[in-house]
Design a protein around this nucleic acid. Structure first.
Length: 465
DNA sequence: TCAATGTGCTACCGGCTCCG
DNA sequence: CGGAGCCGGTAGCACATTGA
């Protein structure tokens, strides 16, 4: 077993000192990426003798909060000794609802509004070609789709909206509305469905049986009309245009989508057209049911407002792009290990198995610069009779971590809980809601403590002494 | 050798928010 | 209202490991 352990320089006296009271999991992410990409280290830490640091092992212990860990001092002497070492222990502030592992792995950085050099004027506001597939817009030469051409009559910005109904063939196009830049209706037509109507979705589409029974055009005729109206150079504007263009089976390259121009702060969630109209146009729409003329005009007005006030208008200050730790490290020569391997046993042995579609390959732990594992024993416990179980688990973890830290040289171990005991807190929360009028003071105390402990997150930075 | 335990994976569920 | 997509949580399964 010893033979398989990584052979490294014996000396390892690097020490990471935390000089900030509270950090976030994202800060640890930045530290790791920064270190392996030779960028300046974040301001919250000081690393002595960084030349000795070759490998970082992260051990997440979800369910164990710092208060519980401190009360188990005799059970977990090693971790507690690390906690009392000033500069190696840090509180973690973990406010996101995405789950701690996502918080750690996926770093959200504010999106900068760097304007691409090759774009200017109105093109800045349009969906870029590389974003077509990401947002499910029909793509050029897609099978059974048609494409706008230079023979279309209208070149100016156009607002479009479609309504759908449910038929025996699935969801079918029922109404298409097109307006010009002065909000004049260019086209407004109901479509004869191919299947038998199951639901007119009147509440949402505004379509009734009368509309459909008086419809005179088939889908292909309507599609043809639209092709005759829209020049390939026209800007087509709408809200969540992918739905409309898919329904029309139409490819058009110059599109402006208000769902993207006015992004939701909680991306990838989208703002509704109704909320955008209320917020930016002080206009109430979709009161009762949808009207595609009104929706098309509203989308066009929002687009025109955006053109007038600039790219940053209507964009929340806190829009983020996501950087995955593995992707960031893959750009360097560092290799990462996915979360949740058969660790710690394989880690102790010094090798690990990676399953490539049924073919298991063995790798030496030393081949990796960053190793991430998650020990889930506490998280898996039921809600009852857990105190003794937790004690046993923490005792076992403490010994394993001590053994690992001593065994690996030139390696920094970051031990963090990630999140507190959510299963206990959720259980008590549910009980409190159900038995609110029979709830005792003791139960209330336990509930408060559980809620409090949820935020007692910690990170320990361990290297051999 | 075999039962108990540990581990990784996946399917499923519910909640949320959009669309029609 | 249902469908879709996304997310987090969880239960259960199959297999590996451990220890008597």
């Amino acid at each position: 077993m010893e033979d398989t352990l990584p052979v490294k320089r014996k000396h390892s006296c690097m020490l990471l000192t935390v000089i900030k009271d509270k950090i976030r999991l994202g800060d640890i992410h930045r530290f790791i990426v920064g270190f392996f990409t030779s960028q300046p280290l974040p301001e919250w830490c000081v690393l002595d003798q960084p030349e000795y640091l070759q490998q970082i092992v992260l051990i997440f212990l979800p369910g164990l909060d710092s208060t519980t860990l401190k009360t188990l001092k005799s059970t977990s002497p090693y971790l507690n000794s690390q906690m009392s070492t000033t500069g190696r222990y840090c509180k973690i502030d973990n406010a996101s609802k995405r789950g701690y592992l996502n918080d750690f792995l996926i770093l959200q950085e504010p999106v900068s509004f760097n304007i691409p050099n090759h774009l200017s004027g109105i093109d800045l506001f349009l969906v870029q070609p590389e974003d077509f597939s990401r947002n499910n817009y029909p793509q050029e030469n897609q099978k059974s789709y048609v494409k706008t051409s230079s023979s279309g009559t209208h070149k100016g910005p156009l607002g479009i909206d479609c309504e759908m109904i449910k038929t025996s063939c699935g969801t079918e196009l029922a109404r298409v509305s097109l307006v010009d830049s002065k909000y004049h209706t260019l086209y407004d037509e109901y479509v004869i469905p191919q299947g038998e109507v199951i639901d007119y979705l009147t509440k949402y589409s505004g379509i009734t049986k009368n509309h459909i029974s008086s419809a005179s055009k088939t889908f292909s005729l309507v599609q043809n009309d639209i092709l005759n109206l829209i020049n390939s150079e026209a800007i087509l504007c709408g809200h969540s245009l992918e739905n409309d263009l898919q329904a029309l089976k139409l490819f058009h390259k110059r599109i402006a989508d208000t769902a993207l121009l006015f992004p939701h702060s909680n991306w990838p969630s989208k703002n509704s057209l109704k909320s955008l109209a209320q917020k930016f146009l002080k206009k109430t729409i979709q009161n009762g049911s949808h009207n595609s003329i009104e929706d098309a005009i509203t989308a066009l007005q929002l687009f025109q407002l955006k053109l007038k006030l600039g790219m940053s208008f209507g964009v929340p200050q806190c829009i983020y792009k996501e950087n995955h730790l593995c992707e960031s490290l893959a750009q360097t020569n560092s290799r990462t290990v996915a979360v949740g391997l058969r660790i710690p046993n394989e880690l102790i042995k010094g090798n690990l198995s990676v399953d490539y579609g049924g073919k298991v390959k063995k790798y030496l732990i030393s081949e990796y610069n960053v190793i991430i594992c998650e020990w889930r024993e506490i998280k898996k416990l039921g809600a009852k009779d857990r105190q003794e179980d937790i004690k046993e688990i923490v005792k076992k973890w403490d010994m394993k971590i001590k053994k690992l830290v001593e065994r690996f040289t030139n390696t920094m171990f970051i031990v963090a809980n990630g999140e507190g005991d959510t299963s206990l807190a959720n259980h008590l929360d549910q009980m409190r809601n159900e038995q609110f009028f029979k709830w005792t003071i003791e139960q209330e105390r336990a509930w408060r403590q559980a809620q409090l402990n949820l935020n007692q997150n910690f990170a320990l930075f361990c290297t051999p002494d």
